[in-house]
Design a protein around this nucleic acid. Structure first.
Length: 865
RNA sequence: GGGUUCGUGGUCUAGUGGUAUGACGCCUCCCUUACAAGGAGGAGAUCGGUGGUUCAAUUCCGCCCGGACCCA
């Protein structure tokens, strides 16, 4: 056992950089793979960060929050499984690669581009890893994965086959949301709103053989006119009741379209006549399906006008929009043009306006089982509980099945081939996974359906979420074999005890994970969900690139000790957004110094391993008993993920009770039990603080108490110390009163007081009081000292008076206010009412006529002579 | 536009049907041999606004204002 001294002041930079390396190299946080007991293995399914850039404040905060849970449970439960992954197979990392290398994926062969993605991601992953390690996150670095690695590819493809075999997947040709820049289908959750400058164009269509010569429509997207396949009016609209059945001619393009009725037309807006194009918006899709309309595709996969657009073919949608408007104007079809600002749907990764295209895509069926998925969500414990509402609303509002195919390069291949003759879908053998249909041969030489012998490989890859929704299966080692079917390598981990998740992505990441794992295992993957809020800027504003109010974690990490940043990260109540707050970090910094200095004092006052005394001095036992209470409270807070409360409770007791009160007493104590108490309390404090400030506690613990990491020791439990707590509290009140006396009288706190008398229950604590306050003689009074008391006021117990006297309380109050009351025989006579003694307390003002200064505390009277 | 949620001293925050917690900052005093990045005191809040329920509302309900998130 080491008994090195600690000296000087705390140097966080040196200590933190020392330990961050140690923990990684020594495998301090490695999960014990031989563990098979789910009760002693706290398992956390960490959502792998998307590799799309550098560490931001959200990463910093959410990882620290997870780490509080991991560190506490590692100590309390015995072991923690705390893995780490990188989500690097999706559009986000492809866009990162394009941005970083200033290239376009279209210009490369698929394999070539994939290589570039791997290289770029690797650099980002390396620096990300370093920063996460720098934050002291207690990840098991021997348990890491990338969502693009072969093992995960196999697992994703297994998941695909399993869901297909269960009848939960289908391929369908239909309108899908499309990003013309990324040139892929995307799912609804990948879109967001963005403001755009645009124009409302009022355009006239000629009526062929109809009740009038022309009709006018308003559109923001004139480039879709070549894709117009019908026009609609509302059946209840008097302005347009002559139009249904008529035929209109599309200006510039000349093709004729029917005018139809549909209740989805908004009568409130515009002219009451709208055009339906394939496709301008979701309404167009519904009309296309409901009225069995033609398909006219005027925009291709890259956002370029097609042959359907005639003279405008080859133009971008933007060019076509301007040119068509000019031509409509010269042809006399443009009635008016008004500039507006409106919201459009864009792809969240590249902010490109989305289109709708009819394509073949793979879907996971979900709409038929929303009730079950809602129930699955209900089975998890939500921290905070209210966040379940978000999940609920999302599930209840689902409108689309989940499109999981993407027309991209760098994802995991969808493992199917199609018969060139009959289009039969050919699946690989599970044992052969992972496969890449583009380079691997199908498992059959001829089509089982038609006997044809050539096959077309599927070129599409999976949506990122199709893989990142499998992290519990990745972490627990899910796999398939001929003999055993689907199994887990570490079944004790599943269900996972905890899933941390940001509140903004409950609806897709968490939801998709629950759905997938539930379908594969029949079990909800998580016992509890910990939702973290967002880090806001100093003024409680959301950080955003456009506002330029982002905070660079690098700068914060360079300026403050990591432990101080972690202290700040513990300021939030679970699920709430919270602001970046440097005050809180400074407070954290002070706590580190305080821990260091207090440890220095403890070390100088006590041997490292003092013998347990037979008898305790009252104050020593009181301290340990109070610490028992604090342990109980703090543990409950940790269990409930109430980190701010745990931190504040612990800090207040350590700082004020232990340092300000107890240590001062201990300095003067001659009792044998004091060194023992100091050491027991000190070791326990280090453990209790360890989840919050792991570096300083590790440094202190290893320096003073030996080589074992404090982070793998058992969490403290109450030892059951007995103490007259009330007497201890009263003793501290007396000490506080004497301190005040010295302050008021300009005396140094270590000045000697000659003669002090105390009336109050301080039995056993006399030595502590006279020791710390340097009192020469301390006298305990059996009776209240000679004082006169006067009634100064009445303190009503409203919780009792209210229900009993109801509306008379006002009169009672004002009578007391003006002094119109009397107390006799313990009863209060006021406003013609008589109040029983239980309903009020008499505030007394005492005067002391004797010699010396008279001080009253809540439970004692102190006289200094 | 709809839903969820938050709004407490200058700043951040706890909390509750009975008059509000702590921290930072501010003011006064003290270099007491762990710590002046410390200690002892003090000032500072009509609990976003407005109606209602109640003997009593910061707390419950309605509306409004402001922020955030989700969904249109």
């Amino acid at each position: 056992m080491s008994t090195d001294d600690i000296e000087g002041s705390y140097d966080p930079e040196a200590v933190e950089s020392k330990w961050r390396g140690h923990w990684v190299n020594d495998g301090t946080y490695e999960y014990d793979e031989s563990n098979t007991d789910p009760n002693t293995a706290y398992s956390i399914d960490t959502p792998p960060p998307t590799v799309s850039g550098s560490l931001h404040m959200g990463h910093l905060y959410s990882h620290i929050a997870q780490d509080f849970a991991a560190r506490y449970h590692r100590m309390a439960d015995g072991d923690a499984f705390f893995p780490f992954g990188y989500d690097d197979n999706g559009i986000a990392s492809e866009r990162l690669t394009e941005r970083e290398l200033d290239i376009r994926h279209q210009d490369y062969e698929r394999r070539e581009f994939q290589e570039l993605c791997r290289e770029v991601c690797q650099e980002y992953e390396a620096s990300f890893t370093e920063e996460i390690q720098e934050l002291g996150i207690s990840i098991d670095w021997s348990n890491t994965y990338k969502t693009i690695e072969p093992r995960v590819q196999r697992l994703s493809q297994l998941s695909f086959l399993d869901l297909y075999e269960q009848g939960r997947e289908y391929k369908q040709r239909g309108p899908a949301i499309w990003c013309p820049d990324c040139e892929t289908a995307i799912s609804q959750v990948e879109t967001e709103d963005a403001e755009r400058d645009a124009h409302f164009n009022d355009i006239t269509f000629e009526i062929v053989d109809g009740p009038r010569d022309e009709v006018t429509i308003a559109t923001t997207r004139p480039e879709l006119i070549p894709a117009c396949v019908a026009m609609f009016v509302h059946p209840d609209d008097d302005r347009t009741d002559d139009l249904p059945g008529a035929t209109a001619r599309v200006p510039l393009f000349g093709h004729e379209v029917q005018i139809l009725e549909d209740e989805r037309v908004d009568m409130e807006k515009g002219t009451g006549v709208v055009m339906c194009c394939t496709f301008g918006d979701q309404n167009d899709i519904e009309w296309y399906q409901a009225h069995d309309l033609d398909l006219r595709v005027a925009i291709d996969e890259s956002g370029t006008m097609t042959e359907e657009a005639g003279d405008y073919a080859g133009m971008s949608t933007h060019e076509a929009r301007e040119t068509i408007v000019e031509d409509l104007d010269s042809a006399g079809h443009l009635v008016s043009r008004e500039a507006i600002v409106h919201d459009v749907q864009v792809h969240e990764r590249c902010e490109t306006d989305i289109e709708y295209r009819v394509t073949d895509q793979w879907y996971v069926e979900m709409l038929d089982k929303t009730d079950e998925y809602l129930e699955a969500g209900r089975e998890m414990d939500w921290y905070p509980e209210k966040m379940f509402t978000r999940y609920k609303h999302w599930v209840e509002g689902l409108e689309w099945d989940w499109c999981i195919s993407r027309q991209r390069d760098s994802g995991i291949p969808i493992p199917v081939w199609y018969c060139e003759s009959c289009d039969e879908t050919i699946f690989p053998e599970k044992a052969d996974l992972p496969v890449d249909p583009l380079s691997d041969e199908p498992p059959v030489v001829e089509c089982p359906d038609c006997g044809h012998d050539s096959f077309e490989p599927e070129e599409d890859v999976f949506d990122t979420w199709a893989t990142s929704s499998l992290t519990p299966l990745i972490n627990a080692g899910w796999d398939w074999s001929e003999e055993d079917g689907f199994t887990f390598e570490n079944p004790e981990l599943y269900q996972f005890d905890l899933r941390p998740q940001g509140h903004d992505i409950i609806s897709f990441w968490l939801f998709h994970t629950v759905v997938k794992c539930y379908e594969h295992t029949g079990e909800v993957p998580f016992e509890s969900v910990l939702i973290n809020g967002h880090v806001l800027d100093r003024d409680r504003r959301k950080m955003s690139k456009s506002k330029g109010n982002g905070i660079d974690p690098r700068e914060v990490m360079d300026e403050y000790p990591i432990d101080a940043i972690r202290y700040w990260a513990a300021s939030t109540s679970v699920g709430e957004d919270f602001p970046f707050n440097e005050n809180s970090m400074r407070q954290g910094e002070k706590l580190l110094q305080k821990l260091w200095n207090a440890s220095k004092l403890v070390d100088s006052l006590a041997d490292t391993e003092p013998a347990e005394p037979d008898e305790f001095a009252a104050m020593d036992e009181w301290l340990l008993a109070s610490l028992d209470d604090v342990i109980e409270t703090v543990t409950a807070y940790f269990e409930a993920h109430e980190y701010a409360k745990a931190r504040d409770e612990l800090r207040a007791f350590f700082w004020h009770t232990f340092c300000d009160d107890y240590l001062e007493i201990a300095k003067q104590s001659e009792a044998d039990s004091t060194p023992y108490t100091l050491r027991v309390a000190h070791r326990r404090f280090l453990k209790l603080f360890a989840p919050f400030v792991p570096h300083v506690t590790e440094e202190l613990h290893t320096t003073l108490y030996g080589d074992d990491s404090v982070h793998t020791l058992a969490w403290p439990e109450p030892e059951g110390y007995e103490s007259n707590r009330a007497a201890g509290e009263t003793a501290l009140e007396v000490i506080s009163a004497l301190r005040g006396y010295k302050t008021d009288n300009g005396l140094a706190l270590n000045a000697t007081l000659g003669d002090v008398a105390v009336y109050g229950d301080i039995e056993g604590f006399e030595d502590a009081i006279s020791g710390v306050m340097h009192v020469e003689t301390l006298e305990r009074l059996d009776e209240a000292p000679a004082i006169s008391t006067e009634v100064a006021g009445i303190d009503l117990d409203y919780s009792k008076v209210g229900p009993e006297f109801g509306s008379k309380v006002g009169a009672i109050d004002s009578a007391i206010e003006t002094g119109e009351y009397a107390v006799s025989n313990g009863q209060l006579h006021v406003a013609d009412e008589v109040l029983d003694s239980k309903l009020f307390e008499v505030e007394e003002e005492r005067t002391f006529a004797g010699e010396g200064e008279f001080i009253e505390t809540e439970n004692a009277v102190v006289i200094v002579r």
